[in-house]
Amino acid sequence: MKILVAEDDITSRAILQAILQKWGYEVIITCDGNEAWKALQENDAPQIALIDWEMPEIDGTALCRKLRVQERKYPLYLILLTSKDEREDIVQGLEAGADDYITKPYDNQELRARVNVGQRMIKLRNELRERDVLKGVLEMAGAVCHELNQPLQSVSGFSELLLLDMDNGDPNYETLKKIKAGVERIGKLTHKIMGISKYRAKEYMNGKRTIVDIDKSAESDQ
């Protein structure tokens, strides 16, 4: 899992990077608020960020505020690193949009536990998001398929009727068979779409966008 560190102090930064990497995280290092903001705009940006309160350019709370007004594709868990431990400071940090904070000098085990909480929260939020997306997909899919299945029935049924009355030496016989086969293929597709039980996406146009992966989404979990 990726984690972003925004810390202007070179020593703190190096220590954070070392321990997070030791715990198995892929660490994205940034040296100020601006850099952190930019890194968090990337497509595959980390979903957990450790943000120092006092930084040049944009400070930690300002960065939190800026990120919270942004409409983001994936949830983001923000932990403020601070040497401020007055109650007003903590309130200010949380009100700015931080999910948690940790006071410097921090204990490594506490840091690890708080990062783990973040990971659990992200997992939960990702699942909720997936459920929302799935609900939308299912409603849309059901409605579209229903609308499609009616005319499909008409085309496939009437072509079947025509074939029953047509001599197979008729020049149109093979053509009609192809029309019927094509429609039946669309019918199989609508049945598959109606069987969608979960949301799975796949990359489309060289990763420029993602689309619903109908085969994977309709696969049974068993």
Binding site: A141, G142, H146, N149, Q150, Q153, G157, E184, M194, G195
Partner: peptide, 26 residues
């Protein structure tokens, strides 16, 4: 035409012999 709206079990419960999803072969 809409399999997700009505489940097979609902249909059996209502007394249907069988259940077909459009488009169905004649």
């Amino acid at each position: 035409g809409n399999a997700s709206l009505f489940e097979l079990s609902d249909c059996r419960d209502a007394g249907f012999e069988d259940y077909f999803i459009k488009p169905v072969k004649l």
